[in-house]
Lab assay of single mutants.
Amino acid sequence: MASQGTKRSYEQMETDGERQNATEIRASVGKMIGGIGRFYIQMCTELKLSDYEGRLIQNSLTIERMVLSAFDERRNKYLEEHPSAGKDPKKTGGPIYRRVNGKWMRELILYDKEEIRRIWRQANNGDDATAGLTHMMIWHSNLNDATYQRTRALVRTGMDPRMCSLMQGSTLPRRSGAAGAAVKGVGTMVMELVRMIKRGINDRNFWRGENGRKTRIAYERMCNILKGKFQTAAQKAMMDQVRESRNPGNAEFEDLTFLARSALILRGSVAHKSCLPACVYGPAVASGYDFEREGYSLVGIDPFRLLQNSQVYSLIRPNENPAHKSQLVWMACHSAAFEDLRVLSFIKGTKVLPRGKLSTRGVQIASNENMETMESSTLELRSRYWAIRTRSGGNTNQQRASAGQISIQPTFSVQRNLPFDRTTIMAAFNGNTEGRTSDMRTEIIRMMESARPEDVSFQGRGVFELSDEKAASPIVPSFDMSNEGSYFFGDNAEEYDN
């Protein structure tokens, strides 16, 4: 783990906690998980779902989305002020799938948001429990990260689609708070800032007046979040320049895209947490497990152990491969979309394939898809080993990566060399080191050039047997250095459309 220093740990961010010791953190995270579980059980009762239907990941996603929508204050306010045809701002819903006479049927349900809020609060001892809501947002974000390569979004903001390893959390809503900021990748933060800068260039009043003052505060806050992700002084200094700019424009845009590229080699610290679907927490609570009393951590053995003992089902389209669908969801559960496939294969105990080789589309089923041909199958979400999630980018030494994705962002704290394609990355730096950030740029390029592919990161860190909950005997895996390590390699994943 990167030293926490003055930073709060993510469990504290996750639970809005002030400084807590490890036991208190485990208890408050457990409380959050228990609340999600209780809410899910109650919703299944309301909807009269069978046990099997309640364990269907598509039903879980609909129920999670309903509660997130019920608590989305800004959108609710907007919907009330701008009524649109056929949208009731006070209601929320989605597809629920039921097994009827041996076939899967889709039923569109509609609930009062007020009623959903009441059920959620009741499951969370009367609190709004925003930490639990954020947790579900991060699960949705991790699922998107594993399912889609955001080529269009990258290109629109002047970045290269091969930089997708920097895009963790790119679909997280803005209201996801400190826990959300911690899991956002460098590219995601750059993209958010670039969008602001572009608006400022096109709209003279963007930075002016009372609204402009708020915009400015948001801009500086985002700059500080991004600065905190960088691990070298030169990158941090460049972020200070971007933040202090009187009138952010093209120079800042250039600096930010430069920094994003540099992060492929001088990786930023991005938190990883295993956020599971509500249909995993519900049955665990129903079986009598007391998360608050037992304590829970999002970055240790607990999620692995929970998945070892969970039964989750998914709808499967006619030509999809259930094992591939399982891999997709497994990666999402562990926030591992940008991790090295060699490491993932070792931990999972079966070969993890790149996205383009998977015969599976996303987990969600569109409303126009034919239910007649839908089957369902068990998702295999178990693992051979477990490993500690990392909050750091690993040290800054790398190795060759593949054509589709030119770097990785480690999820697990496991000893290995970190793949990246130096030639491709360095070719993108057209040696432009003039301007006010020239000395920093020169320094950053120097550090990137001296990074050695064969150097090892996370020295001495290994994986653990599932029986080793105290992480007492690390097993340090050895990897084939020459092997392909990137998930979005030469990829044809669908595009994420909101």
Rank of each mutant, 00 (worst) to 15 (best):
M1S: 13
T6H: 00
T6W: 05
K7W: 03
R8G: 08
Y10I: 11
Q12Y: 08
M13P: 00
E14D: 15
T15Y: 01
T15L: 11
D16Y: 10
G17F: 00
G17W: 00
G17L: 07
G17V: 13
R19L: 09
N21V: 00
N21S: 15
N21D: 12
R26T: 07
A27M: 05
V29Y: 04
G30H: 04
I33Y: 06
I36C: 10
I36E: 10
I36N: 10
G37K: 07
G37M: 11
R38Y: 06
F39I: 11
I41D: 10
Q42M: 12
C44N: 05
E46I: 02
L47T: 13
L49F: 14
S50G: 15
R55T: 08
L56H: 03
I57D: 04
Q58T: 01
N59E: 02
N59C: 01
S60Q: 03
E64K: 11
E64D: 10
R65A: 02
D72P: 02
D72K: 06
E73Q: 11
E73M: 15
R75K: 12
R75G: 11
R75P: 01
R75H: 06
N76T: 12
Y78F: 13
L79G: 07
E81P: 00
H82Q: 14
H82L: 10
S84C: 08
A85L: 01
A85T: 13
K87W: 06
D88W: 03
P89V: 06
P89C: 09
K90Q: 02
K91F: 04
G93R: 09
G93Y: 07
G94V: 11
P95T: 12
R98D: 02
R98N: 02
R98A: 00
R99I: 10
V100A: 10
V100E: 12
N101K: 11
K103F: 04
W104F: 14
W104A: 01
M105L: 08
L108Y: 05
I109W: 05
I109A: 01
L110Y: 06
D112F: 07
K113C: 09
R118G: 12
I119L: 14
R121A: 13
R121Q: 03
Q122W: 04
D127V: 14
D128W: 01
A129F: 02
A129M: 12
A131R: 00
T134E: 06
M136Q: 11
M136P: 00
W139I: 04
W139K: 07
S141P: 08
N144W: 04
N144S: 07
T147V: 15
Y148G: 02
Y148H: 11
Y148P: 00
R152G: 09
R152Q: 09
R152F: 04
A153R: 08
R156G: 06
R156W: 07
R162W: 10
R162V: 06
M163F: 15
C164I: 01
S165G: 08
L166A: 13
L166V: 10
L166Q: 14
M167Y: 00
L172H: 11
S176K: 02
S176F: 09
G177T: 03
A178Q: 10
A178Y: 03
A179T: 12
G180S: 10
A181P: 02
A181S: 15
V183C: 02
K184Y: 08
G185V: 07
G185N: 13
T188E: 05
M189E: 01
M191Q: 15
E192M: 08
E192S: 03
V194E: 02
R195A: 02
R195S: 06
M196C: 05
M196L: 15
K198L: 11
R199P: 04
R199M: 01
N205R: 02
F206H: 05
F206A: 10
R208S: 13
G209E: 07
E210F: 11
E210L: 05
N211V: 10
G212Y: 08
R213F: 07
K214Q: 10
I217Q: 04
C223F: 10
N224I: 12
I225N: 13
K227T: 08
K227D: 07
K229D: 02
F230D: 03
A234M: 05
A234Y: 11
M239K: 11
D240M: 04
Q241D: 02
Q241E: 12
V242T: 15
R243E: 01
E244S: 12
E244K: 12
S245V: 00
S245W: 10
S245E: 02
R246I: 06
N247L: 15
N250P: 01
N250Q: 05
A251L: 09
F253C: 07
F253G: 04
D255E: 13
D255L: 07
D255C: 05
L256C: 11
T257P: 02
F258G: 01
F258D: 08
R261K: 11
S262K: 06
S262G: 12
S262E: 06
A263R: 01
A263G: 15
L264K: 03
L264V: 02
L264S: 03
I265E: 04
I265H: 06
L266Q: 13
G268R: 05
S269K: 07
S269M: 09
V270H: 14
V270D: 04
C275W: 10
L276K: 03
P277I: 08
A278I: 12
C279K: 03
V280M: 13
P283I: 07
V285K: 04
V285Y: 13
A286C: 12
S287D: 10
S287E: 13
G288H: 05
Y289D: 03
F291Q: 07
F291W: 05
E292I: 09
E292V: 09
Y296Q: 02
V299I: 12
G300F: 03
I301Y: 12
D302R: 09
R305E: 01
L306M: 15
L307C: 11
Q308M: 15
N309M: 13
N309R: 15
N309S: 13
N309D: 05
S310P: 01
Q311S: 12
V312W: 11
V312F: 12
S314F: 09
S314A: 12
S314W: 03
R317S: 11
A323F: 12
A323I: 06
H324A: 14
Q327F: 12
L328E: 02
V329R: 00
C333D: 00
C333F: 13
C333I: 10
C333L: 14
S335D: 00
A336P: 07
A337G: 11
A337E: 10
F338T: 04
F338Y: 15
F338R: 05
E339L: 00
D340V: 14
L341R: 10
R342H: 14
R342D: 09
V343A: 12
V343Y: 03
L344I: 12
L344N: 05
L344R: 01
F346M: 10
G349S: 12
K351R: 13
V352G: 01
R355T: 09
R355D: 04
K357M: 10
L358G: 08
T360N: 11
Q364N: 14
I365C: 07
N368G: 01
E369H: 05
E369K: 11
N370R: 05
M371H: 01
M371W: 01
M371V: 12
E375D: 11
E375W: 08
E380I: 02
L381W: 04
S383F: 04
Y385D: 12
I388R: 06
S392C: 10
N395K: 08
Q398W: 00
R400W: 08
G404T: 12
I406M: 15
Q409C: 11
Q409D: 02
P410R: 04
P410F: 02
T411V: 15
Q415I: 07
R416F: 02
N417T: 13
N417V: 15
L418A: 05
L418M: 15
R422D: 00
M426N: 12
A428Q: 02
A428E: 10
F429Y: 15
N430M: 00
N432D: 13
T433D: 04
E434P: 15
G435Q: 03
R436K: 09
T437C: 09
T437S: 13
D439H: 07
R441C: 04
I444T: 13
M447Y: 04
M448W: 03
M448S: 02
E449K: 11
P453E: 07
P453W: 13
P453A: 14
E454D: 13
D455R: 09
D455P: 00
Q459Y: 03
G462F: 02
V463M: 13
E465N: 01
E465P: 01
L466R: 06
E469Y: 07
K470H: 03
A471I: 01
A472P: 02
S473A: 04
S473P: 02
M481N: 03
N483H: 11
G485S: 03
G485K: 02
F488Y: 12
F488L: 11
G490C: 06
A493R: 05
A493W: 12
E495P: 04
Y496M: 07
D497R: 00
D497I: 11
